[in-house]
Nucleic acid binder design. Structure first.
Length: 406
DNA sequence: TCTGGGGTCCTAGGACCC
DNA sequence: TCTGGGGTCCTAGGACCC
């Protein structure tokens, strides 16, 4: 049987730990990150019943001595980068899952770096010494088992699940521990009398499939029986960039909706440009007073990173939803930019006049586009300029003085 | 427990093309 | 010329994760 050589490394109470690291007065005290709601909390706060998504008011009531701090996303992002450098130094293959957790595959490193357990212990030591942050690590033969192991090791612990101990480790766990089992699936399975992973492991595939569908049934049976074929592989680039914001009570006039939408577009399009990407699909999501949700999407004919183009699309989508917005109370709005492309090819839409007048005016329009791009990105970025018919999405013949050698 | 903000993946129908 | 199948893209919604 394969050895346990996959590590799941998970920073403990990450945001709160960064705050305690940067402000010694917070150490040993219950710390809550967030104000309106709890975004993260230290273990001292969790010990008295504070949890993520709890309202700030409830948290204050339960734990009056807690220290509330505003989130500092930049500090968390920097700390995460420092820790990821240690991950990359530790293992040849690192798969980032989120800002505070990653899988590492240390297969075949026995002779140079020691056993997986020794590598994991060394990783914890380095993160504590160099980033000054506590981290828990689970070690197992599969990703799923390693992840469950790191959760069981928390806080500030290390747990190795050897292959011959897997069943004893896995089967007593509640089914919510399985990746992909949330509220809805838990309810369905509980109705069938399935509560523990062990119950699930011995359920027939046909019966399970009738409740959760074929593909989920296969997936759950695999996990419950310790089978998890997923390899540790570096993450592809992110697929969307988004932001959302809730309305303060009683502020949902047309103007206020528009200005919040504009602010969200501003934020997301800026992040898009900073990442050197362009988006083709613009999606708005809405939440209403009765907690129902709705999404509307629009795909542009070509990728863009321009605030104005994205905002125009967002305004169209909001207009489409006008009836529902007027009928129900809008409580939250989000903007998500998807279908991301690299922004190393910039395309612009400029009018070129009537069909009959094309030809002479094509060149003027192209010159104008080149000027705009040059003023925005500087000299030397233009390797080639050509035109695309926006309706057809096909290149029109390249113009005489553009450079085709690039 | 009445709800933040950031994401991913899956399903399913319809349009459209060959 | 009322009829098949396959593939891709777009859109909406839902479940789930940290």
């Amino acid at each position: 049987m394969t050895a346990a050589s996959i590590l799941h490394a998970d920073l403990d109470a990450f945001y709160a730990s960064v705050e305690q690291r940067d402000n010694p007065k917070l150490r040993g005290r219950p710390v809550i990150v967030g104000s309106g709601v709890v975004l993260a909390s230290s273990y001292e706060a969790r010990a008295v019943g504070i949890y993520t998504t709890m309202s700030g008011r409830d948290a204050r009531r339960i734990c009056p001595e807690a220290v509330f701090v505003s989130p500092r996303m930049e500090a968390y992002s920097e700390s995460s980068k420092a820790v990821y450098e240690i991950f990359n130094d530790t293992a040849p293959v690192v798969e980032g899952i989120s800002i505070d957790e990653a899988f590492l595959d240390v297969t075949g490193m026995e002779h140079i770096a020691g056993s997986p357990a020794e590598i994991a212990a060394g990783l914890r030591r380095r993160v504590l010494e160099e980033a000054k942050l506590p981290i828990s690590v689970g070690v197992a033969r599969t990703k799923f088992l390693a992840k469950v192991a790191s959760g069981a090791a928390k806080p500030d612990g290390l747990l190795v699940v050897e292959p011959d101990a897997e069943v004893d480790f896995l089967h007593p766990l509640p089914i919510q521990a399985l990746w992909g089992v949330g509220k809805v699936t838990t309810r369905k399975l509980n109705e069938m009398g399935i509560r523990k992973v062990g119950d699930l492991a011995s359920t027939s595939r046909v019966i399970l499939a009738s409740a959760v569908g074929e593909s989920s049934a296969d997936h759950l049976l695999d996990l419950a029986n310790g089978r998890d074929p997923r390899r540790v592989k570096p993450r592809e680039r992110r697929k969307s960039i988004g932001a959302q914001s809730a309305f303060p009570r009683g502020s949902r006039s047309g103007d206020q909706i528009d200005s919040l939408a504009a602010a969200l577009v501003d934020r997301t399009s800026k992040r898009l440009r900073e990442a050197g990407r362009a988006c083709r699909t613009v999606t708005i999501s809405m939440r209403f007073g009765d907690f129902s949700r709705s999404t509307r999407a629009h795909s542009l004919p070509f990728p863009t990173d321009s605030t104005e183009s994205i905002l125009a699309a967002v305004r169209d989508l909001i207009d489409q939803s006008r009836p529902r917005i007027e009928e129900k109370e809008l409580t939250l709005i989000g903007v998500s930019l998807g279908n991301l492309a690299r922004a190393d090819t910039v395309q612009m839409e400029l009018p070129i006049g009537e069909q009959e007048e094309r030809g002479g005016r094509d060149q003027a329009a192209l010159d104008q586009a080149v000027d705009v791009v040059r003023s925005r990105f500087g000299d030397g970025v233009i390797k080639r300029a050509s035109m695309i018919d926006a309706d057809q999405g096909v290149p029109v013949p390249t113009l005489p003085d553009s450079d085709n050698s690039a």
